[in-house]
Design a protein around this nucleic acid. Sequence first.
DNA 1: AAAACTGTAACAAAATTATTTACAATATAA
DNA 2: TTATATTGTAAATAATTTTGTTACAGTTTT
Lengths: 149, 149
Amino acid sequence: MFLPLYCNKNNYRMNNGRFSIALHILVLLDKAQGELVSSEWLAGSININPAMVRKELISLRQHGFVQSKEGKNGGTTLAKKASEISLGAIYESVRQLSLLGHQKNTPNPQCPVGKNINAHLDGLYNDTERVLIDQLNKQSLADFSAKFG
Amino acid sequence: MFLPLYCNKNNYRMNNGRFSIALHILVLLDKAQGELVSSEWLAGSININPAMVRKELISLRQHGFVQSKEGKNGGTTLAKKASEISLGAIYESVRQLSLLGHQKNTPNPQCPVGKNINAHLDGLYNDTERVLIDQLNKQSLADFSAKFG
DNA sequence: AAAACTGTAACAAAATTATTTACAATATAA
DNA sequence: TTATATTGTAAATAATTTTGTTACAGTTTT
């Protein structure tokens, strides 16, 4: 079939850029008010390659934020109301591993600190990310989109 | 003199890995209870190269967390009490640009959304990061270090 | 049948991060 | 005072991750 996009051999990635792109796409779709929008057009506003947009659209679709129509005059629209899409959910759709990241972190298991640090870092990162998502959840796509004239 | 380390030509960087390393170093120094610890020894616990440790130590020193002694039998100790170093301050010492990042983001200025999105993203990211730092500040290095036997 | 799309894959390039090596400077100790 | 350990810094290299490009098969409309 089709393996997840954007994944490297360690199944690890950071959470930059993509959040901006995803949010930008969603705002544009909200402004389009249900009109089908092509990836070409979206790419024009974001100033990136249409294929990049389509990659992000795959993810947004898998998360139920958008729906697409293939073929001529096809394109994408929001799949739910902008007020029902929280920024935290968008963040979660683009994030992969831990926020503060310790990608390849293999401390010395013979050191009492090294042996346990990953577990403690995980706890810390999870707590911190929870707070971050809660903060983002205070705003919906509709709220954010409203900032644009 | 000496330009900031870890900086690329755009003066931009993410905030991963280095937080883990910085915190790991600081916990080890706390456990050493004022004994001078060599970068070699620190590197052994973290399982990275001593030069990496020394790079991070430069930053930690500049931020007033540690102090070092050169020459034979030299090494590093904490420069203040672990209870006076908050995790938020450590985070701020390793972070460079924005948390959710939009590094090279040059949207189409002719698009009403593209034209304004960076300003709105900046606002969102700043608010979010503020909350993240507040959360980290709830814990001091002493608190975190106490988790290790 | 032609045209305009999306969906997917594979590849290429750029950017970032991590690692290694090297060595001058400094301080201790034999 | 000479050898040794250790930091401080730079530079180069390697690995990884991220971003961008190209290509084309499959779909749907005209």
